[in-house]
Design a binder for these strands. Structure first.
Lengths: 243, 243
DNA sequence: CGTGAGATTGACTATATTCAACCCTAGTGG
DNA sequence: CCACTAGGGTTGAATATAGTCAATCTCACG
């Protein structure tokens, strides 16, 4: 995936305009934001912030996926969140974070200087409201993940991960079958699911031999049986909202 | 649901005044809140909200502990949060929750009618700000728990749980040794830690034979060796902030 | 065409779960 | 006041699931 340093995109033409932190802004507010925004791009694997770094900017993900990672002293790592396009990076009123942020894939961010952004937020209730919604959405997602980490089997975890990608990432189609493009390698998936990379690999192989998925390449998965995937994820009840 | 209505406490004399959702309010704002508040009490085990219930009120925990629980169809349960005194129950702008809320111990809440509360929030930036802080704190806690659920051993999970209680719950002292009063039974602890009740029991027994704790009764634990507990929790680096 | 990182697969092991027996104690009723 | 009971808790033995260690495979890239 070749990364082109993007030229400035007008907010009005921005692909994430309707879902990002600015989604509730009117034209005037958007103009204010436009003044202080800038784009940054990263290669897959690049660090964006280290734990305890001061956050100099906040940002919306425009393109690509970023991961939030916690690490214990002995190296055990747990990914505590993925940021997809339109997701927000940074926390109002907090200069520090206590996890590392890294570009999982090639990544483009729409960045705002933190202090300028916070000054603007104080005058734009639309953004403050939206930030609150975002925080609550993240909280819901974190709790959903607690359920997965604490109580689901390796198979359920793996299927849930694919199911989330089906919902959240930009898909292509192979005929009528959705193609998932994995934003993480096996080890990173394992860190997100609280498993080892070998176990992840085994579960994917199992899904393949069961005819639920088909592997186009290491990073491309065709979902042959969406229903089968959902039922393997242990989410039959609520996961059906695939919209 | 046995409901004991305690007498009204003046906000100024309220034990959680300085940490709760109202902590940033001035006297006038407090007077507004005082008008719409009411107390509710629950017995240990009582349900407070069911998943998908409409939340008719939001509340601060004044006394006791409440738990937030997610359940899969087959009965597997994961506790996704505990609310201690001063913690806030309910989410601005959302009428539904997707977990059950239950009184873990006998519990007293300071409740506000949700709609009236939301109307007040719109006029009181102090409360809106505080709600944002609370949401971000919960998010941090949820992510910390993801690390625990995904990567810690049964021993580390159990020790981490005791360590959290050491920080968050109201302690008594036995000489110089802190006494933890467990707000949950073994099964509930297991649901919080992503373990079985037997495993929790074994880990507690191990901590006992290792001389780290001493069990006064099923629900009372004397911490004989705080350092030992912290190092068993796998939090040596950051857990040291015991204030 | 060779190389190496990432991925898969296999064999073995460890950790936590399951199933079951037993213990403890707070609360009940005789 | 004491004996009994039931629910919660502990402990043990057997089992299952995921982890570990190691060999092999694959494919993108030089």
């Amino acid at each position: 995936m070749n990364l082109i340093l993007p030229e400035r995109v007008k907010c009005n033409e921005c692909p994430i305009r309707h879902r990002a932190v600015c989604s509730k802004c009117d034209d005037q507010e958007l103009a204010e934001l436009e003044k202080i925004k800038s784009y940054r791009s990263y290669k897959a694997g690049d660090p964006i912030f280290w734990r305890y770094d001061e956050m100099t900017f906040v940002a919306s993900v425009v393109y690509g996926v970023a991961s939030l990672n916690k690490t214990l002293e002995d190296g055990r790592t747990q990914t505590v969140g993925l940021l997809f396009p339109s997701d927000f990076m940074g926390r109002p009123g907090r200069q520090q974070i206590d996890f590392d942020v890294k570009a999982a894939t090639d990544l483009t961010l729409c960045c705002f200087d933190r202090k300028k952004f916070e000054a603007i937020v104080d005058e734009m209730p639309h953004i403050a409201q939206r930030l609150m919604e975002i925080a609550l959405d993240e909280l819901d997602a974190a709790r959903e993940w607690m359920m997965l980490l604490g109580r689901k089997t390796a198979m359920e975890k793996t299927a849930s991960f694919l199911e989330i990608l089906l919902r959240r990432s930009t898909l292509t189609l192979n005929g009528s079958e959705p193609v998932i493009s994995l934003p993480l390698n096996r080890e990173e998936i394992a860190n997100y699911l609280g498993l080892t990379l070998e176990t992840v690999s085994r579960q994917l192989s199992k899904l393949k031999t069961d005819g639920v998925i088909q592997m186009e390449s290491r990073r491309e998965i065709v979902v042959k049986d969406v229903g089968g995937l959902i039922s393997a994820s242990g989410n039959d009840a609520d996961g059906a909202i695939l919209s």
